[in-house]
Design a binder for these strands. Structure first.
Lengths: 180, 180
DNA sequence: GGACGATACCTCGTGACCGATGTATTACGT
DNA sequence: ACGTAATACATCGGTCACGAGGTATCGTCC
């Protein structure tokens, strides 16, 4: 989940400088109920981003407890965030967890047309005919399954898909200039 | 995603013996549109499970192309599958991808009460009040957000949650003996 | 004064992931 | 005859995740 974590770090820092611990709490609030973030994953990630010049660190002594390392997004970091938002990897579009993370920061893409382009990628993905279960090549519908649990998967996935399609189309319309 | 992959391997082999390549195609059909499985992840996983005595390998020469290694679930493997289904890790409950994988094979738990217990764990998780966005401690609802993208996240998550709760309650009822 | 929890950061080792690459066969089109 | 794709399995190396553990300060309760 490297991409997801790094995106969240860059995204949160776009709003305001934060130290690692606070960052951790915000990330936990955003995605922690689904997939908690270990400290031993977060701190190395911060270091990676720092080494890449995407964020700067300023040590502030004894404000509360241990010295805090306040992290600020550099101009390069800001640009990298925009790039990651505008050109997401395929996995960022298809994996709901990653997609939600992307959506949470998509407002930082200042260009409405670019925002719309990202939404259209998700739209295209959702419009692909895909199931979880197949008979040969043919995707099976919920009604064709005996297994109540597998039927549940399809029922839930269909409800999600429908809600998201509705939202996507409405949002694309309201983005105005976003029609191709 | 180790647990997810291993569960899928054990689950598919519970139905019928398969060779690695066919296993790969089935796993791809099941979860590939969201998160593709690399061959270099699958084969080591098979070896791990084989080394742990959960599956046995039988080489069949030249049936089609290269020699196939037909994999069969051992009795220990069958037991391990049941154990993983009956006692899922927290992440298997909270992460939708992993939860769906679990659901796809839950029928292999022959005990209806055990199946119901697993569903109730998911039910409890979904009933926890959780949002993605907070103002201090208070979870924010979709209506309180300016950001259309964050509003979308909540709208979609709510629709999913509602559909799944409906399904969970209906299925728990129809599992009959499953009331506590 | 001492225990405890929260704050705040860090390192290390095990193990996992996965892209790249390799090997070899069959099948099919041209 | 040759290229290409599908079948089928495997290894290797770089990178990453993360649990376990460590260090240190501050506030609070008993």
């Amino acid at each position: 989940m490297r991409r997801m974590l790094e995106l969240a770090i860059l995204g949160f820092l776009h709003d305001t400088p934060l130290h690692g611990y606070e960052l951790r709490k915000r990330i936990t609030a955003l995605t922690g109920h689904v997939r908690p973030v270990a400290e031993s994953t977060l701190y190395p990630a911060i270091k990676r981003l720092e080494k890449a010049g995407l964020l700067a660190r300023e040590t502030r002594l004894g404000a509360v407890a241990a010295p805090r390392h306040v992290l600020t997004l550099t101009p390069e970091g800001r640009q990298e965030l925009r790039k990651r938002l505008a050109e997401p990897a395929r996995g960022d579009i298809t994996d709901e967890n990653r997609w939600f993370t992307l959506l949470a920061f998509l407002r930082h893409l200042d260009d409405e047309a670019a925002q719309a382009a990202v939404l259209r990628r998700r739209l295209a993905f959702l419009e692909e005919p895909a199931s979880f279960f197949y008979e040969g090549e043919r995707p099976l519908s919920a009604e064709e399954l005996d297994d109540p649990f597998r039927r549940g998967i399809l029922t839930i996935a269909r409800a999600t898909s429908r809600a998201e399609l509705t939202w996507l189309r409405a949002t694309l319309t309201s983005l105005g200039g976003g029609n191709r």
